[in-house]
Amino acid sequence: MHIHHLSGYIQSIYLVEYEHGLLLLDGCSRADVELIHTFVSESLHRPITDLKIVVVTHMHPDHAGAAEALRKLAGCRILTSEKPHHWYSGLHGMLMYTTDLLLTFWVASRLKKPKRNLFYSPFLEPDIVAEEGMRIPEFEDWQILNMPGHTDRDLAVYHAPTHTIYVADLIVKVKDKFIPPFPVFHPNQYRISVNKLHDLYPSDVLLAHSGSVKLKDEDYAHLFDNLPELPKTHWRATKRKAYSLIKRYRLRKRRDL
C-alpha cells in the first residue's frame, strides 16, 4: 500500500495505490479530473479503470466536485453518506451551493490558480452507502468513520495497520495552529468528532488543506480551546456583517447631527 499525495486545484489529493487497484480518499474538485487521469496513466503507468473506489467525505466543491466525472471516466464506485435529504436540497441549499462555489473560486484566485470550470451536480447518488466502522470494499484495511460537525455527513477514512487517518476538513491549520474549519453547522456533533479523533490518537493525520501532520497534546488542547459553542455558518456570518454595517451607519448619522 502506498499513499500518493498530489497537490490539487485548491486541496490535497490522497490516492492510495495497491497492486489490485486504486482508492481515492476524497472526491476532489472538478478541476482535478485531468490531473488524476494524467497521474494514473503517466506516473503510475496504469489504466484509469484501475481506480475502483472514490470516497466523498462531504458535498463541498473541493470534496465532491470530481466524483461523478471520475465515475463516468473510470467506471469506479462512489462511497459516501446517504441522508434523508441532499446537502444542497431546497432553496436554502441552492443558495449555499452557489456561495460554496463562489468561495472556491475566491480561494483559487488567492492561490493564483488559473480559472477552471468547477461546476458539478449538487446531488450525488452513492454506489456504496457509508456506515460507521464499515470496511471499504476491495480495500478492507481502510475503515469509514463518521465525523460530522463541519456538515451533517462528514466522513473520515482510517487505516488501522499504519494508524493513519484522512479527516478532510475536520480541522484546518492556520499559522501553525490547528483550529475548527469554517463553517461548523453542528457544534455539538463537531465536539464529539474531535473527541473521537483525540481518543484514536492516530500517528499521521491527513488534512485536506495542509498535507500530513502529527498532532501533539498541545495541538489537541488548542483545538479544544477553540471549539465553537454556536454554529459558524455563512448565514450567521452575513448577519453579523450586516449588523456591523448598520451599527456603523447609525454611529456616523449621530455624529453628523
Rank of each mutant, 00 (worst) to 15 (best):
L251V: 09
M94P: 00
I171K: 08
A168G: 07
F119Y: 11
P148R: 00
L207C: 04
W106F: 06
S109T: 05
A156V: 00
P61K: 12
D32N: 11
F178R: 04
Y166N: 07
L124K: 07
F182L: 03
I3L: 01
E132H: 15
S193D: 11
V157H: 08
D204H: 10
L101S: 06
K52N: 04
P183W: 02
V56T: 05
M1F: 04
L102W: 07
K177V: 01
D256F: 01
V172Q: 15
D225W: 15
L6E: 01
R240Q: 11
Y88R: 12
L23H: 01
I78A: 08
K52Q: 00
Q143M: 11
I128N: 03
R240K: 14
G90T: 13
P161Q: 02
L70F: 14
V107I: 10
L6C: 03
R135M: 01
A160I: 06
D141M: 07
Y120H: 09
N117S: 06
I165H: 07
M147A: 15
R236N: 02
M59P: 11
D199N: 14
D169I: 05
K241W: 12
S81P: 08
Y158L: 13
P161H: 01
R110T: 02
T57G: 15
H198Y: 14
L111M: 11
R30Y: 13
V184T: 07
S89Q: 13
K72D: 13
I171D: 07
T233D: 01
L223H: 03
Y97P: 04
A221E: 15
A31T: 07
T80P: 10
L102I: 15
F39W: 11
K72H: 15
P231K: 03
S109I: 10
W106G: 00
I53K: 12
F39A: 03
H37K: 14
R236Y: 14
L124M: 15
V129S: 13
L73G: 06
V167W: 03
T104A: 12
V33N: 07
S244R: 09
H4N: 05
T104I: 01
E19C: 09
H222L: 08
E82S: 11
N146Q: 12
R240S: 10
A31H: 13
R236Q: 08
A69H: 11
G21L: 06
H234L: 09
R250A: 06
D176G: 06
S43M: 05
W106K: 10
H209P: 08
T233G: 11
M1C: 01
V33F: 14
E131P: 02
P231R: 09
R254M: 05
A64G: 06
V55E: 02
R110D: 04
W106V: 00
G133H: 07
H159L: 09
